[in-house]
């Protein structure tokens, strides 16, 4: 069956819009001050790998016929969201020479994998799988660690938070959780701009630790994974 659209979906879309638009227009006063000269709007995209996420180990337990309260394990499971290729698009607004507010949408198709083992009746161990479509939309800040215009490589650190939506195979269920990230990377400028305000293009390399909570990760506390992406950007 197909999932019905609910207020949750509407909330998700609304939040996504707020994050992206907010990143683009919030610092209106920065231009008014006319402090530094540099391209304000940064757009980009790329691809990479979203690492595996452990969603927890759980035993299928029965109540033992004793007064001690010990459980009888029928079988054991270990669940993870497997590593997968990821694609992302970004939109940012540079608030200052160092600080950029940005929003990002990341898309991937990981598989949900469950290792089932240690069956009390000796059933063969199995790795059961199903497909997941993942959307993560995040807003955050990027801080350049250098600002010299002649430098090709500009390292940065960044961090932020957002929402993660996981749609199960056949669209039978969608689960929404929250995400957070902290990472680092580098921008590589291609060519030298004719003027400080001129459009700038380059490459971006990004590695971040991403935290997932709730939604598909509900019950596992906070799950973490590494996401690494590479792509291009244009600043204008």
């Amino acid at each position: 069956m197909r999932i019905a659209r609910t207020w949750r979906d509407a909330r998700f879309r609304l939040t996504a819009t707020v994050v992206l638009v907010g990143a683009a227009v919030t610092p209106a006063d920065a231009q008014g001050r006319g402090a530094a000269s540099f391209p304000r709007v940064e757009a980009g995209g790329g691809g990479g790998v979203a690492g595996a996420v452990s969603l927890g180990d759980r035993d299928a337990n029965l109540l033992s016929d004793n007064t001690s309260g010990t459980a009888f394990r029928l079988f054991a499971t270990a669940t993870e969201l497997h590593a997968a290729a990821a694609a992302e698009v970004r939109l940012g607004y540079r608030l200052s020479p160092r600080l950029t507010a940005e929003g990002r949408l990341t898309f991937s198709r990981p598989s949900l994998r469950v290792s089932i083992s240690s069956d009390a009746e000796d059933a063969a161990a199995v790795e059961a799988t199903s497909g997941i479509t993942e959307y993560v939309i995040e807003g955050g800040a990027l801080w350049r660690l250098a600002t010299e215009t002649h430098r090709r490589w500009i390292p940065f650190v960044n961090g932020g938070a957002g929402l993660a939506r996981h749609v199960h195979e056949d669209n039978v269920l969608a689960e929404n959780g929250v995400s957070g990230y902290a990472g680092a990377g580098a921008l590589y400028a291609i060519g030298a701009p004719r003027t400080p305000e001129a459009r700038q293009t380059g490459l971006r390399f990004d590695v971040r630790l991403q935290l997932l909570h709730g939604g598909i990760a509900d019950g596992a506390g906070v799950s973490t994974r590494v996401v690494a992406t590479a792509g291009a950007f244009v600043a204008f």
Binding site: F75, L112, R113, V114, I116, D119, A123, A124, V126, E127, A128, T129, S130, H168, E169, D170, V172, L173
Partner: peptide, 8 residues
Amino acid sequence: TFHDRVVT
């Protein structure tokens, strides 16, 4: 036997 698919 365990089913080899996760069921949603």
